[in-house]
């Protein structure tokens, strides 16, 4: 068994983060439901949070690992702001639904006021 499979290191986290990013972007691009898009955004935000924590812990090859806990702090702020963003976005979606009876973003383009 190679070392890569036995010890968890930076690449493992980066692969997970990249998969989350890919899932998030494809969700954002394909969903027509506004809440679906929001879910895609949350996936990308969490991918970034994983990146931050992993980079903070392991450091990039050739670059010294950051001495402080900057990356971990950033991850916590991402969680907080993601919650705030979701609440604002959901309020706007709800209001849109009240006005139009749908939260389909493609129809939002065609609907006349």
């Amino acid at each position: 068994m190679s070392d890569l499979l036995l010890t968890i290191s930076l690449p493992h986290f980066l692969v997970v983060s990249f998969l989350l990013l890919a899932a998030g972007i494809s969700t954002m691009l394909t969903k027509r439901n506004a809440i679906g898009i929001l879910i895609g955004v949350e996936l990308v935000l969490n991918a970034a949070a994983i990146n931050f924590v992993a980079f903070n812990h392991y450091g990039w090859p050739g670059v010294r690992a950051a001495p402080a806990i900057d990356g971990q702090m950033f991850a916590i702020f991402i969680i907080v702001l993601a919650a705030a963003e979701a609440s604002v976005a959901l309020a706007i979606f709800l209001n849109f639904y009240n006005n139009f009876g749908s939260i389909d973003v493609e129809r939002a383009d065609d609907l006349k006021a």
Binding site: M28, I37, G40, A48, N51, A66, E85
Partner: peptide
């Protein structure tokens, strides 16, 4: 929301590369 997600992911890469 989409652009802020792009911004945060970009920042995570910048942080990783520059430390």
């Amino acid at each position: 929301a989409a652009s802020s997600a792009a911004m945060v992911y970009g920042m995570s890469l910048v942080y990783g590369v520059t430390g």
